[in-house]
Design a protein around this nucleic acid. Sequence first.
DNA 1: TTTCATCATAAAATCGATTTTTTGCACTAT
DNA 2: ATAGTGCAAAAAATCGATTTTATGATGAAA
Lengths: 213, 213
Amino acid sequence: MSSEQLLEQLRRDVVTGIFIAGEKLPIDALRQRYGAGLSPLREVLNRLAATGLIEQLPQRGFRVPALTRADLEDVASLRIELETRALRDALIHGDDHWLDEVMACLYRLKRTPLRPDADVEQWEMCHRAFHLALIGACPSPWRRRFVGVLYDQFDRYRRAAPERPDLRDTLDAHHEQLATLAERRQVEEAVALLERHIQLSFEVALDCLPHSA
Amino acid sequence: MSSEQLLEQLRRDVVTGIFIAGEKLPIDALRQRYGAGLSPLREVLNRLAATGLIEQLPQRGFRVPALTRADLEDVASLRIELETRALRDALIHGDDHWLDEVMACLYRLKRTPLRPDADVEQWEMCHRAFHLALIGACPSPWRRRFVGVLYDQFDRYRRAAPERPDLRDTLDAHHEQLATLAERRQVEEAVALLERHIQLSFEVALDCLPHSA
DNA sequence: TTTCATCATAAAATCGATTTTTTGCACTAT
DNA sequence: ATAGTGCAAAAAATCGATTTTATGATGAAA
């Protein structure tokens, strides 16, 4: 498996929750799991550690960061701040080609079923592609980069949380409405909706934590 | 040289401009330069590539990213956005221990001379420590992380630009004023000053680019 | 003269083995 | 019984060698 694919595979597996939060990632076990060599594997782990998707403890290997309420709140609020502005700029600067891409992602997302028995990973990829496509016309590469990082961080929580069938339709409707508002360049409405969308997802994600308090 | 030190050394050398922007970073040359082994070196390069301080071209090694006006404007504006908010939150949440740290960094910075003949690197380290100390009490780890990334990116430009003795005193005064405003918890004044400070540094940094247009 | 293909060189990426460090356990002394 | 020490096993980090891939030069054909 090439280094490029390995990075993507490992990123996905961490976000998916294949590895439990807080769990250690023993190099040899990963080596076997992915059939990868030592060097490419360590390089990929270093890359993921640099973006915060995994942690490195010097001389003690790598581990998956724990899920905490404080971190989730931090990720969610910063994501709202950066992503709403990214959406605003995308709606202002986006051209027809960008809209095509958004619509294409929307239709792929709509036609991909989200059921426990189906391939959830397929839906997740479409969902991610749609959100990133929405801000694809944001003219700030650094903002897009940070939004991408926060999206993955957020997703670790959301995907660790139990399903909420009562909210599924609302969240799905948001996606369609966001695309429509993007098409009509209704900036303020779109920004407000995206904030609500992330806020609602945040509340869903909270359920992955022990609700003692 | 340990992996930890190697990372810090290489980060510093890239920001300092030891390597010319756009230049290729041949592994073997780096291996010699730092007396490092292949594996630790490649791991460090991968980490830096993940944060954007260097670029990786698959199968073609690593290079230092070019300096462009568009990138500088992107970095500067996002830095202003994230760092002013970080300062606001720091002033609101910071305790006495944080203030001690800010003042300690300020005094180290003030007593460190900035002259071409002296050890510029020493001043740069103090300058960085001061700015990061200012936002040290910001309660959002992710915001602090992103600010740190943008600080380094910004510094590549600032340090590539020629000296501006006419602005030196103003910029130095800003640091002292920022510390004073932090001590007095004058949030709005501090935030406004930090924005001006970065804006002025941005104008200095612009001089590292060919001023054709 | 230009373009394309081929080969030789150099560089990057990967691999397997070695070294270093940590960790868990048994043993001893208090 | 507990705290501390030493040892053995396991894991991480590093190294040198090998393999793979890109690059630049050479020569042949159009």
